[in-house]
Every structure is written in C-alpha cells, then in structure tokens.
C-alpha cells in the first residue's frame, strides 16, 4: 500500500468518513465529517463511494507530499489548495505524481475542508466499521489523533480516472452573505420554552462564538429565557440546538456527547448543516422554522444533486476524450478512410 507524508499537520487535521453508527447506546460518539456534504462531494469527484475516508482539516490545511501517482479533490472551505505552488480549484479532480507537494493557506471563508484520494480514500484500519477519528477519546482514524509532521497515511496508488477532465462541480460554493437563514424543526423540548423564548429564538440574530469545534458551536447573541423545569438526560441528535442554563444556544455537531440534559429548542435540518458548519463568526444567523415535510424534501434535493453528479461523471466516460487522444482520432479516421 502507498503512503503520503504529512510535512505539516495544519490546525486540526483528522481522518473522517460518514461516522461510526450503532454504538451511541454505549456512549461512543458518531463522529465523521463535520460537513458531510462536502466530504461526499470530494469522494464523488475522485470516483469513490461517499463512505470512503477523507482528510478533514480546520481553518488551515496540512502540507502533504505524495509518494505515488493518484488523483485528488479538495472541497469545503476556501482553503486555497496549491500543488507544487500552483493554485488548484476546489471541487475539481487532479492527477498528482510522486514527489508532488500539496499545501493550503488559512481559509478565506468557511471552516472545514476535505481532501479525497482516488481508489478508496484513506485506508487506516477501520474500527467498529468506521475510520472516523474521535480525538477526545483517542478513537479510530490515525492512532486516534490529529495528524502531525512525519505521519505516513496509507492509501492506494491509482493510474486511471474515468472522464478526469469533466470531474468538476460548482457545488463547493461557500455562503458569504452577511445574514443567512438556517432552517430548523421544532425540537423535542420546544413546548418547555415560553412564547417569549420561542419568539426571541426565531427573530433575534445569532453568530458562532469562538467556542466552536467538532463537538458543537456555542452561539453568541441575546441569551434566551430558559425553562424552570429541569429535564432528565436523553439521547442527542446531530443539529440539535440545546439551550444552556445561562440561555446560550449550543448546536450539537458530529463529535457531540451521545446524551445531554439541556432542553432542545430545535434541530437544524440536515440539508442546512453543511452551510451552517462552514459559517464564520462574522456571519449572522436567522433561525427559520420549517415543517418535517420541508426538511425531508430539502434533504432529498441535496441527495439528488449528489446522485446527479455521480451519474453525469459516469455517462461522460463514454464521450470523446479530450487532450492528445482527440487530436489523434481525426487523423486515424482519415487514414482509415483513405485506405478503404
């Protein structure tokens, strides 16, 4: 198996896939990519199943040296990827060769970036059916930790990528609007909150505080009136917006604890989580309530956009290739006709 080398770890670079499911009853967090959509997109670009492991990096990406031929794609935040000093686009597949060096700049927009590699992605040993890393409990991924200089990360060599030239997408756009709508569904404890608290939640603006990591984002803004009633701890769900005793909202993300005792006022819909997780602390958030039907439709639309892309890449395989082969083709055709 081939290995690429980490020359610099970046801020918080970990191996992630779509998460470790089925063990939350034992207190084991799901983990997996924070921006699941960007992770899946990166995989599709290099012809992987969406469940393949990618490298997730936060704010500043790693510096990497490749030791073999393969294909890569970068998605997520505006990380300014460079290959041997030349700028690459996000959302596009590229060939890399032995000795090539991939580097990033601090993100101009967004928080989390993803690097996918062709032929099955990152191949650290799976644990409980997943390669995701949960750093807090040293679980999974690469020795359960963030990557650092000198680490050698296993992956497969790859020499062919069908319809390479067509493998690009504009679905990597990061919202830079000053105010964004984030859609949510009423949470299981919505009724515990006063009408004042409910109204404040849906009319006031919030933004992501500096206390933001893979476990969750604490939001800044006006504190909400909190229910008097204490509740018993219960299972947590991705995107839950819990309100602390002080009235601060915390949005639970992929490394969240599996159980929590704060009341949940709402749950961010799955289709908006990608956009939400990439917001900067300057962008204002307006929470907008939607129904289950809207949330379900939005998720289906998002899934359909990925599916459409995968189908397009597949169909383009059978179109005329670009590049030197295309120049040769008419000449060959001409020769054949002359000889007939």
């Amino acid at each position: 198996m081939a290995q690429f080398e980490i020359l610099a770890g970046g801020l918080a670079t970990t191996v992630q896939d779509t998460g470790r499911r089925g063990y939350q009853a034992q207190g084991i967090p799901v983990s997996g990519a924070t921006d699941l959509f960007a992770h899946q997109l990166a995989n599709l670009l290099v012809n992987n199943p969406v469940t393949a492991a990618t490298l997730e990096f936060m704010l500043l990406g790693p510096k990497i040296k490749f030791n073999c031929h393969t294909f890569i794609a970068v998605t997520g935040g505006a990380s300014n990827p460079c290959l041997n000093g030349k700028n690459l686009s996000r959302g596009k597949a590229y060939a890399v060769h032995c000795g090539d060096i991939l580097s990033f700049s601090p993100m101009a927009a967004g928080r989390f970036g993803y690097l996918a590699l062709a032929a099955g992605g990152i191949l650290t040993a799976p644990l409980l059916q997943s390669r995701s890393t949960t750093v807090k409990i040293s679980l999974g991924g690469y020795h359960g930790r963030k990557l650092a200089q000198g680490d050698l990360i296993p992956h497969n060599e790859c020499f062919q990528m069908p319809s390479l030239a067509f493998r690009q997408t504009n679905l990597t756009a990061i919202s830079q609007n000053k105010t964004v709508n984030v859609r949510f569904m009423q949470g299981p404890q919505w009724q515990l909150f006063s009408t004042e608290a409910q109204a404040a939640f849906t009319t006031k603006l919030f933004n992501i505080s500096p206390q933001a990591d893979r476990m969750g984002y604490r939001l800044a803004g006006d504190n909400l009136p909190v229910p008097n009633k204490n509740m018993l701890s219960e299972g947590t769900v991705l995107g839950n917006i819990q309100i602390t005793r002080a009235g601060e909202p915390i949005v639970l993300l992929t490394d969240r604890q599996t159980a929590g005792g704060y009341p949940v006022i709402g749950t961010i819909i799955a289709a908006d989580l990608s956009m939400f997780t990439q917001l900067t602390s300057e962008q204002k958030i307006h929470f907008k309530q939607v129904t289950l039907a809207t949330a379900t439709q939005a998720l289906e639309n998002q899934r359909a956009s990925l599916k459409k892309l995968a189908v397009e890449f597949k169909e383009l395989r059978y179109q005329q290739p670009l590049g030197p082969a295309r120049k040769a083709a008419p000449k060959i055709t001409k020769l054949i006709i002359q000889n007939q």
Binding site: Q24, A25, V30, L232, E234, G235, T236, T258, A259
Partner: peptide
C-alpha cells in the same frame, strides 16, 4: 441506524 436508550426516552435514528 442507531438507538439511544435513556431514563424515560429512546432516541431512534
């Protein structure tokens, strides 16, 4: 996909 039993609730994914 997952089930989290708690004191008086069961969260089902």
């Amino acid at each position: 996909l997952d089930a989290i039993p708690a004191y008086h609730t069961l969260t089902l994914y």
